[in-house]
Amino acid sequence: MIDKFVRSMAEAMNGIRDGSTVLIAGFGDVGAPNALLDGLIEQGATDLTLVVNSAGRVHKPGDPTTGVARLVELGRVRKVITSFIRATSIAGEAVRDGRMTAEVVPQGTLAERIRAAGAGVPAFFTPTGAGTLIAEGKEAREYNGRPCILELALPGDVALVDAWMADRWGNLVFRDSSRNFNPIMAMAGQLTIVQTHHICDLGQLSANEIVTPGIFVDRVLHVAAGDPQLPR
């Protein structure tokens, strides 16, 4: 019997190694695997490369630090690959002080690099970013009269995913705009770990409605994570 449910956070995080590239889904707090990030903080892996759409909020003294910002603050992140990093965030400060590097890429290029990794495409040319700072050091070529740059697939050793509902095969559905990076990161992770708000019996999710089939999923942890929060 296939059963991808794990019973504890320790089991969910088991085997994540130092030096891993970790794909972290979510757009703001919506669809973000925050419980799994807490688990990763606890688990202790270090020297990580994090792939995440936004590297964090403006840092206000006294605010509790969580998630990506907490991993950065603990000195466990070597590099972040992101579309958006604020100078005044904990990640931005770490980059400025030389404690971490950041590779900032256009959001669509980020998504497509992740999709390409999941689809077995090693690299692709795109016009996005041609003639800008982010083209520096990248192979350039013209297609149909448009300058393009070469972008590489971005696979993860680990993907952390937030689902609305899951069954024991790891079939997933997502709620509203929480879908965002979750399906493509699930495809691009060597080890895909899911936190799900709800669980159901096999067969309760219809074949028509499943967004991410279980073939892309390795472990599922049921977490009553509550509603996403707005940025403060």
Binding site: S83, F84, I85, R86, A87, T88, S89, G92, E93, V95, R96, A102, V104, V105, P106, Q107, G108, I134
Partner: peptide, 8 residues
Amino acid sequence: EAGRQIGG
């Protein structure tokens, strides 16, 4: 700039 806010 240390911040790079490209987004989409």
